[in-house]
Design a protein around this nucleic acid. Structure first.
Lengths: 232, 232
DNA sequence: CGACGATTTGAATAGGATCAATGGGAGTGG
DNA sequence: CCACTCCCATTGATCCTATTCAAATCGTCG
């Protein structure tokens, strides 16, 4: 692959301060592949052979134990998967599958680790990326531990609303099934949680949700920047 | 402070590969303080002015939202608190209080960031530390999302058992109240969970727990290395 | 058109939380 | 050393939240 193929990768915070030569040599060993939807890219427990970067489409990170399964997060362009496993040369803790047809860049983890040893700017960028990811999951963990399912949904809706410009309506980015699993509940319970929020001005029509009484919804949700604000 | 005061700090994975001069200059600006028990060291939302390193005693990391509060983890010697906030120069996402009289080393976060910029070995050590912390909380999150409270308790007991040598009995490292909060349940529910485990050979006597039927307990717990093994 | 999966709704159940009350130590002051 | 107090831990009763199982509806895609 040539680096010129993917200007958006170069612009990733992770790579933008990297030396040109390191970037070139990383791109030379990288693979750009297009996968169909619903394909399992990685399985938890496998050794971390590659760093994955989502260029187009979307990828679901999920985990299993016993018979249960839970969505951990959705990665969209341009985002990386499981940097921590790659850096520690350990096994993946999460599985990943494409949500839809997706274009993914694969970089062998040994090359990532080599670049990390050689290029100090890259090492620093990695630290920022990792620290951000760490703080992101701390927030998810707090969300799950400190809130009821209705509160989690209410806050998630408010967050989508801000992300999407805040014009009073929200487009759910994924299936409700996945949203439910992200929020730590069953699909049935999500459906009921939406009903519970109806008196607070939440009107659901498929993937479109209108928020007609934001102040009331906020009063219920009590959003907390230390949980809900992105990448603080 | 002089670096010779704290050989155990120098031996921390975080610092051991650091250049001597960087380490010296960090130690020169560090404070070593002894705090009484139950003292709030940091409050979530405050700017991250210091990196904290627990030298003696123990520190509880916890978080609040609305009226609720949850223990996130317990840090024991020699461990660091909230590295991610320090590196990102952001606010703390968690609060911290001493559990008992504790000796803590405080290093101004600006100096940590400076050392990180100057010393590449240190930068790399930080990446390993961060990646380990990240993977640790991913496991906690999976534990909470994929298991019932009884399963969480059973697996935690098995983990303590391994940590403590595996001789058939376990000493609970903290109050049951804190254990309950770590496991994401109320103290009442923890008490009942212990009762539920009685038929699986779990005998509780204060902080001492005897495990008299490990195979049966394991059959129930179904331990999963991708959740339960430390620092994989 | 027909099949399949997603979503919703209903009913029953289970898992946890809350409220209240009691027993037990550990630490304090007399 | 003993009485007192406070907080932890346990237990019971009840309530609430969320899951499970079942069934109906809806939409989409082949």
């Amino acid at each position: 692959m040539r680096s010129s193929d993917l200007p958006e990768v170069r612009e990733l915070a992770l790579f933008e301060s990297m030396s040109a030569e390191c970037f070139e040599s990383l791109m030379r060993v990288a693979y750009l592949q297009t996968f169909p939807g619903q394909l399992e890219l990685i399985a938890e427990g496998d050794p971390a052979d590659f760093l994955y970067i989502v260029i187009e489409g979307s990828v679901e990170l999920y985990a299993k134990s016993n018979g249960r399964e839970a969505t951990m997060s959705i990665v969209r362009p341009v985002g990386t998967l499981i940097l921590a496993a790659v850096l520690k040369d350990a096994v993946y803790l999460m599985s990943a599958r494409t949500r839809e047809k997706s274009k993914i860049l694969l970089i062998p983890s040994e090359d990532i680790r080599a670049a990390f040893r050689q290029d100090n700017d890259f090492a620093r960028a990695i630290v920022v990326e990792l620290a951000t990811a760490y703080r992101g999951i701390v927030k998810e963990y707090k969300d799950l531990k400190l809130r009821s399912s209705v509160e989690r949904l209410a806050n998630r809706l408010l967050r989508f609303h801000e992300d999407q410009g805040g014009n009073g309506s929200v487009e759910l980015p994924d299936d409700k099934k996945i949203l439910a699993s992200q929020l730590g509940m069953t699909p049935e319970n999500l459906s009921r949680a939406f009903n519970t929020l109806k008196p607070y001005g939440v009107e659901v029509d498929g993937a479109l949700v209108r928020l007609t009484d934001l102040s009331s919804l906020r009063r219920l949700a009590k959003p907390n920047p230390l949980i809900d604000s992105p990448s603080t």
